[in-house]
Design a protein around this nucleic acid. Structure first.
Lengths: 208, 208
DNA sequence: TAACAGTTGGACCAATTGGTCAAACACCCG
DNA sequence: CGGGTGTTTGACCAATTGGTCCAACTGTTA
């Protein structure tokens, strides 16, 4: 009866996953307020009261989704290692972020929607966990700069620039495809973007 | 009586502007579906039926707002001149876009909201006007590349990168401020960003 | 200042929405 | 196979929402 305390049954696991999958579709496309429980239930192939049996409030679904997504979203930055070669570390960070835009665009848009509307539900996470992680990696970057292994520049804005350029291909996908047109807008656009961005940032980072 | 045909009265001009101003606040913060007529009317200091006397449907306000915004949004790219010096043209394009993020963040977020949700109301504009403009300016960039005045690279993705990095400071403002913290997150962040971005792109563009 | 066009908002409406409830139904284990 | 736990849904509810109507009010102009 009490879903929160007891261990999950087989059906609970399956249905919760189905709901989260459907909700990711709907939330990422319509935003939190634009998404309706009816639509999510419909997409998950169940009735609304049935959905509400697994998640008691609409917001509970959103919280669970954002939580999972944030972990995935932070992984590439966590993987940036102070021990590695600076340029290839940053190069693979860019590549990984771009791959995430290609492979998980809904997650990216879910996050973008949330931040765009003032991050009402995750502001503490941004000010805490995210900020600490960025500070930590900024320190790594600054060390590399002090050692003359990459150019001296602002590490925070460098990270912002990587986020912005890579996520652009998920969040503004419609616009990117509209501008590139049917010919250039195919799947190849991610490879073109990867080539362009790696070159842009590597040239910006190499000591002159 | 028929507002659409007759010339506007003094009151009509004033009230319509007040409504659009209030609606920009609400739409950019909550998205189209999240925004309610009540909130807009409230923010504009009038009753809901009074607001609906000036704009008969919620969508009419949105259409007017998006139309005005798109013009302003395209201006900086339009100003990119084939006659100027390539590097300083691109430098001032970046600066102008960043100033727009600083001075008109609501407009940027309104646009981001729309595109994020699949641009249902402006897709034709993106595929038409925007695409043509970008094609035209891409041709200018390619000419500069052929002449050896800037490095050979992908002009479309270069433009995307400029859009993404500059608009990031408006669209993801909450996140930027959360990560920078109270000290570094003040007004100075735009100057830091300007310095960083101009350097990044100039280094990416200079022929090696 | 009279009279008409333009303006305003309280009351109202139907549709949508998030969420509840209870009764029926299915699954699993002894 | 019986009984209890877990699952499902139709009916329902109150709040919100986009939008209408109309009667009252105001600004302007002859």
């Amino acid at each position: 009866m009490n879903i929160a305390v007891r261990p999950r049954t087989r059906i609970q696991n399956e249905k919760r996953e189905a709901i989260l999958e459907a909700a990711l579709d709907v939330f990422s496309a319509e935003g939190f307020r634009g998404a309706t429980i009816d639509r999510i239930a419909d997409a998950a192939g169940m009735s609304k009261p049935n959905l509400l049996y697994y998640f008691r409030r609409k917001e509970d679904i959103h919280v669970e989704l954002i939580g999972r997504m944030l972990e995935k979203w932070l992984d590439p930055l966590r993987a940036l290692s102070a021990q590695g070669d600076p340029v290839s570390e940053l190069r693979s960070y860019i590549r990984r972020k771009l791959e995430m835009s290609r492979d998980f665009p809904r997650e990216s848009r879910l996050f973008a929607n949330e931040v765009l509307q003032g991050a009402p539900r995750i502001l503490p996470l941004l000010q805490g966990e995210l900020r600490e992680l960025v500070d930590e990696k900024s320190a790594v970057l600054r060390d590399w700069m002090r050692q003359g292994r990459i150019r001296r520049t602002d590490p925070w804005h460098l990270i912002f620039a990587i986020w912005a350029t890579t996520q652009h291909y998920a969040d503004f996908d419609v616009q990117v495809r509209a501008v590139l047109g049917p010919d250039r807008g195919g799947e190849g656009r991610f490879e073109d973007a990867a080539r362009f961005l790696e070159e842009l940032f590597v040239r910006g980072l190499l000591p002159s």
